[in-house]
Structures are given as C-alpha cells and as structure tokens.
Design a binder for these strands. Sequence first.
DNA 1: ATGTGTGCAAAATCTTTGCAGGTTG
DNA 2: CAACCTGCAAAGATTTTGCACACAT
Lengths: 131, 131
Amino acid sequence: MERRNTRQRQLVLDAVRDLDDHPTADEVYLRVREKDEHVSRGTVYRNLHVLVESGDIVSVKVSGGERFDRRSDNHAHLVCTECGSVKDVPAPDVEDARREMERAWGYADVRTSTVFAGVCPACQKKSQAAR
Amino acid sequence: MERRNTRQRQLVLDAVRDLDDHPTADEVYLRVREKDEHVSRGTVYRNLHVLVESGDIVSVKVSGGERFDRRSDNHAHLVCTECGSVKDVPAPDVEDARREMERAWGYADVRTSTVFAGVCPACQKKSQAAR
DNA sequence: ATGTGTGCAAAATCTTTGCAGGTTG
DNA sequence: CAACCTGCAAAGATTTTGCACACAT
C-alpha cells in the first residue's frame, strides 16, 4: 500500500501539468516519451490511475473518451460536441447538492463534476459554411 | 439525412428504456438480442449514437465507460467509485451557469451534465469488513 | 531485503467500418 | 426506387495484464 516516488510517476504528473489542454492518456504518453524514450504505455496508464486515485490529477470523461487534468476544485468543463475541445470554466456552486448526496444517501467522499457540452463558435461557423 | 424507423432502432430505444439502470452499450446489445437473435453489435452501436444525437436518449460518461439513459432533463447521476453503480438523483440548478456558457463564450445548444462520485454505503461496509 | 514499480509484448476490451444485400418512405 | 439501414466479420483503437527484472524505501 505504500506509495513510491518513481521518476516515471513524476514524469506523468509533470506531463499532465504541463499540457494544460486536458490531454488524453495517449497524449500524456507521447509527452512523457519526449523526456524519456523508454517509458512504456503500460506505465503511463498505471500511473494515471494511481494519480487519479490519490487525487493529484482529475479524470474528465467527455464524448470521445477520458481526459486528464491537473487538480483544481473550482472549475467545470465546457466541451465542444463537434471538435471535442475542452475549456475550463468557472464551476457553478453545487455544494449544497453535493452535501445532500452524502447526507441523504450515505455516500462517502463525494466529488462533483459538472460538464457543459455545446457547439463552440468556431464549429458553428464551420457548419454554417458547409451549408 | 432522413431518419427512418427501423425495427432495430426501436428495439434499441426500448432496451434503453426498459433497463433503467444505466446500461452499457453491451448490456443494451444483450437485451436487444433477447428480443431478436439477429441484431448485430454494429447496429446497436450505430443506433445508440443516432438516438443520442437526436436527443431520444442520453449518454452518461462515468469511470468505467459510457452508459446510456432514457432522456430526463431533471436528474443528475451519483456513481459509486468502487462498484460502478449509477443512481439517479435530483439535479442541482445550474441554469444560470449554463446560460452563461452561451452568453460569455458563444457556445450553442449547451447541455449540462452533473455527476457526483463517491463511495456507496454498501461499498463502505465492504471495505470496512476487508480491514 | 521487500514489495512496488517498470518494460515489453501479448491479450483483452470496446468500438468502428467496408461491403453486399435488405428495407423504409 | 433512392436513400438509408443492416448483418457480418474484419479492422481499429484503447486499455489492461503476465512476467521477469529493477529500484525505492
């Protein structure tokens, strides 16, 4: 159960922090590889899980798959359903509701994730042009 | 672009509505197969996408993959990070924030998804017992 | 020392797609 | 009949895992 500090784990954490555009697992892998040719995909996946588990990073599920993000309680995500881009936005306050999950249903350690999904301005233009 | 009403599409829609425990694509497939042996996985996946696109059903992304749900604007989801169960809960009001996404960033057709994640009572007991 | 973590590659999942033929409106 | 849609199976994409060795504590 002890958590060790390996170079690879640090590289994965750094990669997620450096890439602040919500990278996919594979993008993290590629970034890590820039620093060290020998790190394997398996290691990156394993460490992403460990880091999410420990709360050092956050996993964001959107259409198109799983993305990772540096920890930050106070933002939500705004994703474009056309191009898949993910944008940080201020989080709405759902603290009351969150507490209610713990109180009313007895869940522990409840975390909140708010995702807004729509069509970004660029993609609106694009689909207009296509018409 | 015309939308046709095929037996298979109806079966998929019915399956999602019948299974009200937020089925995975594969669970929908299995359910459909109970009614008709010959429907293929490809067809189920294709129709799930079509139905999400048209708003007849909703896709819920949680740890562990994509789930589907009958349309229902006024609920959020409470998922257990241990067993993966998904529960419907009343949605917190984030309408102001949602509108702000459209106003401030120019996104169109913005939809909201709120997901709470924690450990359900049953899983809390389990991990206590394991100690 | 000891048990975590790693690299590698294979395996397991899960989802998409090409194609030939069937169906809907 | 002209789109659409389907079944099948193969291909793609993504993630997990077994194993032997390496390394942090």
